[in-house]
Write a protein that binds this DNA or RNA. Structure first.
Lengths: 344, 344
DNA sequence: AAAAAGTGTGCAAACGTTCCCAAAAACGTC
DNA sequence: GACGTTTTTGGGAACGTTTGCACACTTTTT
């Protein structure tokens, strides 16, 4: 801000004290007399003194801000995670800077490096679906930037991670479809790179196995761009339909909504005949037609937990060597009426 | 970031130059020899020099960051606006800090003041539905903080503003309902404080007037909290239904989706008999049941325009005294089939 | 009564930049 | 080769903090 505000110097001059004394009074350090402290505090209050965080950051070599990278904020899951992050961060006097990768590796790297050069104290990141090479993150980490991964985590990176119980979520959703009488269950999922893709695929396979349904690789469709392009989804749907699935298990928020749109757009007549169960945190699923069963992730909580872990790393006196992988349970929200009901 | 990176000083020492020379070479000032510039640039590249933005901010008394206040990022309209803002901001080397008011005046004020103390160079804000007293914004503005309002703008505040053509959007939506044969058209809207509420009400009234339908105040329901609490919406729906509306015009994104949820939850049997037209930027409306006609705002563009105006203010050499009010056209997306069709 | 310990304050350096001002180097002109 | 002019460089202050150290003063201990 260009406009002038009062500084420690101003206060010092006005009160006939030194800047150090004023600083100490404001920061409530031990070696300061009650009297001067009161005096300074009162005056600071009067002139509405606000410490300049930039100067403080420069001096302390930290910014009290944490960076967040998600693929997209216009996504119910991520925006809920962000709310969780903020709830903790603000309490602990950190502020957050949000960046979007739009599922692009290049954009992700660019944003992370931009944030790093902006002197963030730590980073919370869910990898983009394109990301395979995380060496740039390793470099930053090695240089001392605390990083906590959430949702989409790399396998071989020793730091805190917070994820949902993806295996169980996928298993539950698939089992639900099976118990509803479906037998040809397709799986529409994200890029193969992602941890969530692998875990959810395993859950899907396990459910099939439990009910002795053969796993058919051709029923699994991967979307490299996480459904960012509608063409990608329409293509997947087009390839899937000839295999006559009676159910689809979809493994991410964006894909789930995107898939229903694609189905209705390209094949409205079959859209209602296929049961859909998918990961989504949309609070609007009840409005959807065809209706769907959804796996809800504890997004808000995930944000909170990840932030607590990150702040503990930031504020740790010595390098952290013990890392946690927190796994949070998902919730299966079954649709209220029978599958494919047009009258919902 | 705690870890050490190379600084101008390091480069200067290594190259046997002074910091001023290095700084000039890096910043590509006119008074520097081609040769030294090349030398410095090459070395900087080699050691992967990154200017410390904090130090720069302190010196230049600006942060190259702009603050954004919206009520909620988990809202299609606002997240699209944010994408528009980012698209311009990043091009111009600003970064953005997003804050959410959650439709609370207190939270909004807190966030703005937090941002201001964080030395943002300018502010983009859509007021919360609770906000009536904007004197705190006036104070900051008077002190020199550039502010541009978008979407929800105050009446008596001389600065740039970017809004949608709310009157026309509301008129079109209401007229569409009338032309579909509806005669008892309710209006569910936001807090009366908001500019958008007033403008959209006028559009609604104008459409009624055009077709000689009497305006009935009891058909208008205000939601003070913008639909943040579902109870608020359910209450409004409950009060509206006895008046037997055959159409509802809803004036905001959150209210529109929220209202359909409330309708289906409280009165599923009538939900499909009422035609709904509402403001929303959801890309999922096609999935909704009951289906609805939507007024889409040019959210992305709104963000872009607002950001351009803000940056022009920030970078203006002399105080800006001529202000613009940009009004962007909305788009009416009619539902594909007849109103209330359960088979959509 | 002198020494030791404790308390409150100020001085000055540092964080990494930018930029004003002056000094030095390079160049041209007579 | 002395002079002015232009180009290039360096010195150092400043931005607003925090903090190690030293100093002065008071209180306690011996």
């Amino acid at each position: 801000m260009r406009f002038e505000t009062s500084t420690i110097k101003d206060i010092a001059k006005a009160l006939g004290l030194s800047t150090s004394t004023v600083s100490r009074a404001l920061r409530d350090r031990y070696e300061i007399s009650e009297e001067t402290k009161k005096l300074v505090l009162a005056y600071a209050e009067k002139v509405n003194y606000r410490a300049n965080p930039i100067a403080r950051s420069l001096k302390e070599r930290r910014s009290y801000s944490i960076g967040i990278i998600v693929s997209e904020i216009a996504n119910n899951f991520f925006s809920q995670v962000i709310n969780g992050i903020e709830s903790i961060a603000y309490d602990r006097d950190y502020h957050v800077i949000i960046s979007q990768s739009h599922e692009s590796y290049k954009q992700e790297k660019l944003n992370v490096e931009h944030l790093a050069s902006r002197s963030i104290d730590g980073l919370l990141i869910a990898l983009s679906s394109e990301t395979q090479d995380i060496s740039y993150l390793r470099d930053l980490y090695a240089k001392g930037l605390p990083i906590v991964f959430f949702d989409r985590v790399p396998e071989d990176f020793e730091t805190h991670k917070v994820i949902a119980n993806n295996f169980k979520g996928a298993f539950d959703a698939t089992e639900h479809l099976i118990l509803s009488g479906k037998r040809v269950i397709a799986h529409l999922t994200n890029s193969e790179n992602l941890s969530i893709t692998k875990e959810r695929l395993k859950g899907y396979q396990a459910a099939l196995a439990k009910y002795h349904i053969e796993f058919k690789p051709e029923l699994v469709k991967y979307c490299q761009h996480g459904g960012m392009h509608s063409a990608e989804l329409e293509q997947a749907v087009k390839e899937l339909l000839p295999l006559k699935p009676d159910g689809i298990f979809i493994s991410s928020d964006r894909l789930t909504t995107g898939c229903i749109v694609a189905l209705k757009k390209t094949n409205p007549e079959v859209a209602h005949k296929i049961a859909i169960a998918g990961f989504t945190n949309s609070n609007l699923v009840e409005l959807f037609s065809p209706s769907l069963t959804s796996v809800k992730q504890p997004a808000f909580e995930m944000g909170q937990v990840a932030t607590e872990l990150l702040i503990s790393m930031i504020e740790a006196k010595r390098p952290v060597t013990e890392f946690e992988i927190k796994i949070l349970d998902t919730e299966l929200v079954k649709m209220q009426k029978n599958i494919g009901n047009r009258f919902l």
